[in-house]
């Protein structure tokens, strides 16, 4: 708090130097881990994105549902189409206040190109219990190439605040 002595530019002593070196090495390691996992790991944040508009995206989703719908199931009393697209294809989920539409039925171990976009606000795609979390924005068609490695019923929670009904926004993915 008081003024320093006039000449404070002194060499660091042994302990400081050692800690500085170790900390620097650790920081460099932290930096390298990310590209390493990018090339070697199986879980990376999707980057593929296209511009879209809510109107355009809604049309695509409706065509998709019409083509592959196999049934209907309700979530919190609201009926949703269940859609079973072929493995390897483009699959779509539409976020809007406060629904994830439609319900997808996928196959375990198969790869899908999952498109996510919003009709209105920011929403948060939070797939439970596998705990994958991505941001969904209007105007952006976000493509995640996913391979389910477990089967069962999975819930999509909205984890970006999207106004008063936010907590009611729940969706579903079924993996056979």
């Amino acid at each position: 708090m008081l003024a320093p002595e006039q000449n404070w530019w002194k060499p660091m002593d042994r302990l400081e130097k050692t800690w500085l070196t170790v900390a620097l090495v650790w920081c460099i390691f932290l930096t390298i881990m990310m590209p390493l996992w990018y090339f070697q790991g199986k879980q990376n944040v999707p980057t593929e994105t296209y511009r879209t508009t809510p109107q355009q995206y809604a049309v695509t989703v409706n065509e998709f549902v019409a083509k592959y719908q196999i049934g209907e199931e309700s979530i919190n009393g609201i009926p949703f189409p269940v859609v079973a697209p072929p493995a390897g294809s483009d699959v779509y989920i539409r976020a809007s206040a406060w629904q994830w539409y439609p319900i997808l039925q996928l196959e375990k171990g198969k790869e899908y190109r999952l498109h996510l976009s919003s009709m209105d606000y920011n929403h948060g795609f939070s797939l439970q219990p596998v705990n994958i979390n991505l941001q969904v924005l209007p105007g952006y068609d976000y493509v995640a190439t996913i391979t389910p490695t477990s089967s069962g019923d999975f819930t999509i929670v909205c984890n970006e605040y999207c106004y008063l009904g936010h907590h009611t926004m729940v969706g579903k993915i079924i993996v056979k």
Binding site: L30, M34, W37, V45, N131, Q135, N159
Partner: peptide, 11 residues
């Protein structure tokens, strides 16, 4: 950390 964030974002 870029990839780990996927487990954490908005939880």
């Amino acid at each position: 950390t870029e990839q780990i964030n996927m487990l954490v974002h908005n939880t």
